[in-house]
C-alpha cells in the first residue's frame, strides 16, 4: 500500500500534465479578460479540490498522533458555470453565451461585427472533475500539522510542483463538558504547472465531530480563496475581428475562483489503524470526497 502511493500520485499527475498543452490551446485565442471568464470554473474546481479532504474529525490526540493517507474526490460543475457572456469590442453584441472550459465542446460562439467575426473555443464538455492526492498529519498536544507534498515531477516539457500544509487546533479541549469535538483549521495549498499556471489556495474552517464507537460523524464550515495565475501566449490571428487578438504576445492573467464558502458533512469508519471516510461539501462546486488513512 505505501509503495503504491507515489505511483498513484505520479500517475494522476501524468494524466494532468498531458493536458497542460491542450489547456494552452484553449487559452491561446482569448485575451486576459476573456480567459478569466473562460478559466474561472477551472480555478474554482482545482481550488475546491485542493481545499477538500483537510479533515475527517475535529478530535486531535491529546498527546501524540500521526496519519498518512490518500484523498480522492470528484467535483461537480454546475450548469451555470459552463457558459459565460463575453465582453466584446465596440460594435459587437454578445447576443449569446459562449462556453467556459467545462462547457460544451461545440459551445464556442461566433460573433459578427464591423471588423469581422470574433470566435471563441469550445469547452471540454465535462461536468465531473476528479482529483487525488496524498497527505500526512502529525499531532501533538491537541494541535495537528498536515502536509501534502510531491517532489517536482518532470514530465516532457512540463514539471509539476505540489505542496500544501494545514494547522489545526482542538478548541473543545478547553470546554470539558462539551458533547462534541470542535476544532479550527487553516489550510494552504499550492500547485504549479511550469509555464502555464500557479494555483494558490487558502482556507479556514471550523469543524465539529462526534464519535459513536467506530464511526465518527463530522461536519464543518469553511471559508476559502483560490487564485489562479495563468501564463500563456496569445497566438495572433490577423483574421480576428478583435484587434487585440491579431498579434502574438504573452499574457499573464489572474483568476480568482468562485469557491468562497462551503459546508461539509461526512462520516468515517475507523478500524484499528485504518480508516475510510466519505464526505460531501456544498459550495460553488459540490464535492464528494473519499479517503483512506493509516494512523493513530
Amino acid at each position: 500500500m505505501k509503495k503504491m502511493i507515489p505511483y498513484v500520485f505520479i500517475f494522476s499527475f501524468l494524466l494532468v500534465s498531458f493536458s497542460s498543452a491542450q489547456v494552452k490551446d484553449r487559452f491561446s485565442y482569448l485575451n486576459s479578460t476573456e480567459v478569466g471568464k473562460f478559466a474561472k470554473p477551472l480555478a474554482t474546481s482545482v481550488g475546491t479540490a485542493l481545499n477538500s479532504g483537510g479533515f475527517t474529525t475535529a478530535a486531535i490526540p491529546s498527546l501524540f498522533g500521526f496519519s498518512i493517507g490518500l484523498r480522492g474526490m470528484v467535483i461537480i460543475v454546475p450548469d451555470d458555470q459552463k457558459t459565460f457572456t463575453p465582453t466584446l469590442p465596440a460594435g459587437y453584441t454578445a447576443d449569446k453565451k459562449t462556453a467556459t472550459i467545462y462547457g460544451p465542446k461545440d459551445g464556442g460562439a461566433i460573433y459578427s461585427g464591423p471588423n469581422g467575426y470574433i470566435t471563441y473555443p469550445g469547452g471540454i464538455g465535462e461536468s465531473v472533475i476528479p482529483m487525488i492526492f496524498p497527505q500526512a498529519t502529525l499531532s501533538l498536544l491537541g494541535t495537528e500539522a498536515m502536509i501534502r507534498y510531491v517532489p517536482k515531477i518532470n514530465i516532457g516539457e512540463t514539471n509539476i510542483d505540489f505542496f500544501g500544509f494545514g494547522i489545526k487546533h482542538n478548541v473543545s479541549q478547553y470546554f470539558i463538558l462539551l458533547p462534541v469535538d470542535i476544532a479550527v483549521q487553516f489550510l494552504y495549498n499550492s500547485l504549479s504547472v511550469k509555464d502555464l499556471a500557479d494555483i494558490k489556495n487558502t482556507a479556514f474552517n471550523v469543524e465539529v465531530s462526534k464519535t459513536f464507537g467506530i464511526v465518527t460523524a463530522y461536519g464543518g464550515l469553511q471559508f476559502e480563496h483560490t487564485k489562479l495565475d495563468l501564463n500563456y501566449k496569445i497566438k495572433g490571428d490577423s483574421q480576428s475581428g478583435d484587434p487585440a487578438l491579431r498579434e502574438d504576445y504573452n499574457i499573464t492573467a489572474n483568476v480568482n475562483g468562485d469557491n468562497k464558502v462551503r459546508m461539509t458533512i461526512g462520516g468515517v469508519l475507523k478500524l484499528s489503524f485504518l480508516s475510510i471516510n466519505v464526505d460531501y461539501s456544498v459550495g460553488s462546486q459540490s464535492t464528494l470526497v473519499s479517503g483512506l488513512t493509516f494512523g493513530i
Partner: peptide, 29 residues
C-alpha cells in the same frame, strides 16, 4: 478504497480524453 481509487483514475482518463479534441471557430475575411 481500491475501487474508489481506480474509479478516480478512470475518471481522470475520461477527463484527459475530453482534452484530446478541440472545437475551434475560425474567422476569415
Amino acid at each position: 478504497f481500491v475501487t474508489a481509487l481506480f474509479s478516480a483514475l478512470l475518471f481522470n482518463g475520461c477527463i484527459t480524453d475530453a482534452f484530446n479534441t478541440l472545437i475551434q471557430n475560425v474567422p476569415i475575411s
